[in-house]
Amino acid sequence: MIRLLNVSMMPPGVGQPVLRNLTLTVPQGEFRWLLGPSGAGKSSLLRLLTLETRPSAGQMDLLGVSVSQASRATLRNLRRRIGFVPQDYRLIGEWTVFDNVALPLRLRGASERDTRREAFAVLEWLDVAHLADKRPGTLSGGEQQRAAIARALIGRPEVLLADEPTNALEDAQARRLLATFQELVDMGTTVIVATHNEALVREAPATSIVLQDGTLAGADPQDGIAARRSDGT
Protein backbone atom coordinates (compact mmCIF):
# COMPACT_ATOMS: atom_id res chain seq x y z
CA MET A 1 0.00 0.00 0.00
CA ILE A 2 1.07 3.56 -0.70
CA ARG A 3 -0.09 6.27 1.68
CA LEU A 4 0.81 9.96 1.56
CA LEU A 5 -0.39 12.35 4.25
CA ASN A 6 0.15 16.08 3.71
CA VAL A 7 3.33 15.38 1.79
CA SER A 8 5.29 18.31 0.40
CA MET A 9 8.50 18.23 -1.55
CA MET A 10 10.85 21.12 -2.03
CA PRO A 11 14.07 20.27 -3.86
CA PRO A 12 17.18 22.05 -2.56
CA GLY A 13 17.78 25.41 -4.21
CA VAL A 14 14.19 25.72 -5.40
CA GLY A 15 12.19 28.53 -3.86
CA GLN A 16 8.80 26.83 -3.78
CA PRO A 17 7.60 23.25 -3.29
CA VAL A 18 7.01 21.11 -6.39
CA LEU A 19 4.46 19.03 -4.44
CA ARG A 20 2.17 20.56 -1.79
CA ASN A 21 0.14 18.90 0.96
CA LEU A 22 -0.47 15.78 -1.06
CA THR A 23 -2.74 13.27 0.63
CA LEU A 24 -3.61 10.02 -1.14
CA THR A 25 -3.86 6.29 -0.61
CA VAL A 26 -3.34 3.52 -3.16
CA PRO A 27 -4.26 0.11 -1.74
CA GLN A 28 -2.05 -2.87 -2.56
CA GLY A 29 -2.92 -4.59 -5.83
CA GLU A 30 -4.56 -1.59 -7.54
CA PHE A 31 -3.87 0.32 -10.73
CA ARG A 32 -3.69 4.12 -10.98
CA TRP A 33 -3.08 6.44 -13.87
CA LEU A 34 -0.98 9.45 -12.91
CA LEU A 35 -2.20 12.36 -15.02
CA GLY A 36 -1.59 16.07 -15.31
CA PRO A 37 -0.02 18.64 -17.59
CA SER A 38 3.74 19.05 -17.89
CA GLY A 39 5.19 20.59 -14.74
CA ALA A 40 2.23 19.44 -12.63
CA GLY A 41 4.52 17.35 -10.42
CA LYS A 42 4.07 13.83 -11.87
CA SER A 43 7.81 13.15 -12.14
CA SER A 44 8.37 14.62 -8.67
CA LEU A 45 5.76 12.28 -7.22
CA LEU A 46 7.39 9.34 -8.99
CA ARG A 47 10.78 10.43 -7.60
CA LEU A 48 9.26 10.34 -4.13
CA LEU A 49 7.68 6.94 -4.70
CA THR A 50 10.91 5.45 -6.14
CA LEU A 51 12.72 6.75 -3.04
CA GLU A 52 15.06 8.97 -5.04
CA THR A 53 14.23 11.66 -2.56
CA ARG A 54 12.43 11.98 0.75
CA PRO A 55 9.47 14.25 1.47
CA SER A 56 10.32 17.70 2.84
CA ALA A 57 7.22 17.52 5.03
CA GLY A 58 4.40 15.11 5.77
CA GLN A 59 4.16 11.37 6.20
CA MET A 60 4.78 8.79 3.48
CA ASP A 61 4.26 5.06 3.98
CA LEU A 62 5.32 2.60 1.31
CA LEU A 63 4.66 -1.16 1.64
CA GLY A 64 4.14 -0.67 5.36
CA VAL A 65 7.38 1.28 5.89
CA SER A 66 7.42 4.88 7.05
CA VAL A 67 9.79 6.39 4.53
CA SER A 68 10.36 9.63 6.41
CA GLN A 69 12.00 7.85 9.34
CA ALA A 70 13.48 4.84 7.54
CA SER A 71 17.20 4.05 7.76
CA ARG A 72 19.37 3.73 4.65
CA ALA A 73 19.33 -0.06 4.96
CA THR A 74 15.52 -0.09 5.15
CA LEU A 75 15.26 2.17 2.10
CA ARG A 76 17.70 -0.09 0.23
CA ASN A 77 15.55 -3.16 0.94
CA LEU A 78 12.42 -1.23 0.00
CA ARG A 79 13.91 -0.18 -3.36
CA ARG A 80 14.43 -3.84 -4.23
CA ARG A 81 10.65 -4.35 -3.97
CA ILE A 82 9.88 -1.54 -6.40
CA GLY A 83 10.06 -1.69 -10.19
CA PHE A 84 10.46 1.56 -12.11
CA VAL A 85 10.33 2.40 -15.81
CA PRO A 86 11.92 5.85 -16.11
CA GLN A 87 11.09 8.13 -18.99
CA ASP A 88 14.80 8.34 -19.90
CA TYR A 89 15.25 4.54 -19.51
CA ARG A 90 18.37 4.90 -17.29
CA LEU A 91 20.20 1.90 -18.66
CA ILE A 92 23.89 1.53 -17.86
CA GLY A 93 25.65 2.14 -21.16
CA GLU A 94 28.73 0.03 -20.43
CA TRP A 95 26.71 -3.09 -19.65
CA THR A 96 24.81 -5.39 -21.99
CA VAL A 97 21.01 -5.36 -22.09
CA PHE A 98 21.06 -8.70 -20.29
CA ASP A 99 23.22 -7.37 -17.42
CA ASN A 100 20.98 -4.29 -17.13
CA VAL A 101 17.85 -6.42 -16.95
CA ALA A 102 19.40 -8.98 -14.61
CA LEU A 103 20.56 -6.35 -12.10
CA PRO A 104 17.48 -6.28 -9.79
CA LEU A 105 17.56 -10.07 -9.38
CA ARG A 106 21.30 -10.11 -8.81
CA LEU A 107 20.93 -7.44 -6.15
CA ARG A 108 18.36 -9.65 -4.45
CA GLY A 109 20.94 -12.44 -4.41
CA ALA A 110 19.18 -14.74 -6.90
CA SER A 111 21.25 -17.55 -8.39
CA GLU A 112 22.79 -16.89 -11.78
CA ARG A 113 20.75 -19.74 -13.27
CA ASP A 114 17.43 -18.30 -12.05
CA THR A 115 18.50 -14.80 -13.06
CA ARG A 116 19.31 -15.99 -16.57
CA ARG A 117 16.04 -17.90 -16.92
CA GLU A 118 13.89 -15.03 -15.69
CA ALA A 119 15.78 -12.35 -17.61
CA PHE A 120 15.43 -14.20 -20.89
CA ALA A 121 11.77 -14.96 -20.22
CA VAL A 122 10.94 -11.28 -19.79
CA LEU A 123 13.21 -10.23 -22.68
CA GLU A 124 11.54 -12.76 -24.96
CA TRP A 125 8.10 -11.59 -23.87
CA LEU A 126 9.10 -8.04 -24.86
CA ASP A 127 10.66 -9.27 -28.14
CA VAL A 128 14.15 -8.04 -27.25
CA ALA A 129 15.84 -11.34 -26.29
CA HIS A 130 17.92 -11.17 -29.47
CA LEU A 131 19.38 -7.88 -28.17
CA ALA A 132 20.55 -9.37 -24.86
CA ASP A 133 24.25 -9.05 -25.69
CA LYS A 134 24.00 -5.56 -27.18
CA ARG A 135 24.89 -2.34 -25.40
CA PRO A 136 21.95 0.05 -24.85
CA GLY A 137 23.64 2.76 -26.89
CA THR A 138 23.32 0.66 -30.04
CA LEU A 139 19.54 0.22 -29.65
CA SER A 140 16.62 2.32 -30.89
CA GLY A 141 14.48 4.31 -28.42
CA GLY A 142 11.72 1.69 -28.47
CA GLU A 143 14.18 -1.15 -27.86
CA GLN A 144 15.77 0.73 -24.96
CA GLN A 145 12.33 1.39 -23.51
CA ARG A 146 11.49 -2.31 -23.69
CA ALA A 147 14.80 -3.14 -21.97
CA ALA A 148 13.93 -0.66 -19.21
CA ILE A 149 10.46 -2.23 -18.90
CA ALA A 150 12.06 -5.68 -18.70
CA ARG A 151 14.30 -4.50 -15.85
CA ALA A 152 11.28 -3.13 -14.00
CA LEU A 153 9.18 -6.27 -14.49
CA ILE A 154 11.81 -8.87 -13.59
CA GLY A 155 11.28 -10.53 -10.25
CA ARG A 156 7.65 -9.31 -10.06
CA PRO A 157 7.96 -6.15 -7.93
CA GLU A 158 5.36 -5.33 -5.26
CA VAL A 159 5.05 -1.79 -6.60
CA LEU A 160 5.55 -0.91 -10.25
CA LEU A 161 5.94 2.72 -11.26
CA ALA A 162 6.22 3.80 -14.87
CA ASP A 163 6.85 7.23 -16.35
CA GLU A 164 5.47 7.42 -19.91
CA PRO A 165 6.27 3.72 -20.51
CA THR A 166 4.63 3.60 -23.92
CA ASN A 167 5.85 6.78 -25.59
CA ALA A 168 8.36 4.89 -27.76
CA LEU A 169 6.23 1.79 -28.30
CA GLU A 170 3.92 0.87 -31.16
CA ASP A 171 0.22 0.66 -30.36
CA ALA A 172 0.15 -3.13 -30.26
CA GLN A 173 3.14 -3.22 -27.91
CA ALA A 174 1.56 -0.55 -25.71
CA ARG A 175 -1.68 -2.57 -25.44
CA ARG A 176 0.28 -5.69 -24.63
CA LEU A 177 2.15 -3.80 -21.93
CA LEU A 178 -1.10 -2.60 -20.42
CA ALA A 179 -2.33 -6.19 -20.33
CA THR A 180 0.84 -7.16 -18.48
CA PHE A 181 0.30 -4.37 -15.96
CA GLN A 182 -3.20 -5.71 -15.41
CA GLU A 183 -1.82 -9.23 -14.87
CA LEU A 184 0.58 -7.84 -12.27
CA VAL A 185 -2.27 -6.01 -10.54
CA ASP A 186 -4.23 -9.27 -10.48
CA MET A 187 -1.25 -10.90 -8.78
CA GLY A 188 -1.20 -8.17 -6.10
CA THR A 189 1.22 -5.60 -7.49
CA THR A 190 0.37 -1.92 -7.13
CA VAL A 191 0.88 -0.20 -10.48
CA ILE A 192 1.07 3.57 -11.09
CA VAL A 193 1.59 4.76 -14.66
CA ALA A 194 2.24 8.39 -15.53
CA THR A 195 1.20 9.25 -19.06
CA HIS A 196 0.06 11.92 -21.48
CA ASN A 197 -1.44 9.30 -23.78
CA GLU A 198 -5.18 9.98 -23.50
CA ALA A 199 -6.07 7.23 -25.96
CA LEU A 200 -4.34 4.71 -23.77
CA VAL A 201 -6.13 6.01 -20.67
CA ARG A 202 -9.48 5.73 -22.47
CA GLU A 203 -8.63 2.17 -23.42
CA ALA A 204 -8.01 1.11 -19.82
CA PRO A 205 -10.32 3.09 -17.55
CA ALA A 206 -9.13 3.20 -13.96
CA THR A 207 -8.92 5.56 -11.03
CA SER A 208 -6.51 8.39 -11.76
CA ILE A 209 -4.36 10.61 -9.64
CA VAL A 210 -4.56 14.00 -11.32
CA LEU A 211 -1.99 16.61 -10.41
CA GLN A 212 -2.12 20.33 -11.10
CA ASP A 213 0.61 22.72 -9.91
CA GLY A 214 1.90 20.21 -7.39
CA THR A 215 -1.44 19.51 -5.76
CA LEU A 216 -4.26 17.03 -6.34
CA ALA A 217 -6.74 18.39 -8.83
CA GLY A 218 -9.86 16.51 -7.74
CA ALA A 219 -11.37 14.19 -5.15
CA ASP A 220 -12.39 10.59 -5.65
CA PRO A 221 -15.37 9.79 -3.44
CA GLN A 222 -14.67 6.03 -3.48
CA ASP A 223 -11.33 5.83 -1.65
CA GLY A 224 -11.17 9.30 -0.26
CA ILE A 225 -8.08 10.35 -2.13
CA ALA A 226 -7.89 13.48 -4.15
CA ALA A 227 -8.29 12.05 -7.63
CA ARG A 228 -10.76 11.50 -10.38
CA ARG A 229 -11.76 8.53 -12.43
CA SER A 230 -10.41 8.72 -15.93
CA ASP A 231 -13.53 7.12 -17.38
CA GLY A 232 -15.54 10.12 -16.18
CA THR A 233 -17.51 8.39 -13.44
Binding site: T50, L51, E52, R72, A73, R76, N77, L78, R79, R80, F84, R90, L91, I92, L103, P104, L107, R108, R151
Partner: peptide, 10 residues
Protein backbone atom coordinates in the same frame (compact mmCIF):
# COMPACT_ATOMS: atom_id res chain seq x y z
CA UNK B 1 22.97 6.34 -9.06
CA UNK B 2 21.05 3.78 -11.14
CA UNK B 3 22.36 0.81 -9.17
CA UNK B 4 21.84 2.72 -5.91
CA UNK B 5 18.20 3.45 -6.75
CA UNK B 6 17.65 -0.16 -7.80
CA UNK B 7 18.61 -1.19 -4.29
CA UNK B 8 22.37 -1.83 -4.35
CA UNK B 9 23.88 -1.44 -0.91
CA UNK B 10 26.56 1.17 -0.31
Amino acid sequence: EIVHFLGAGD
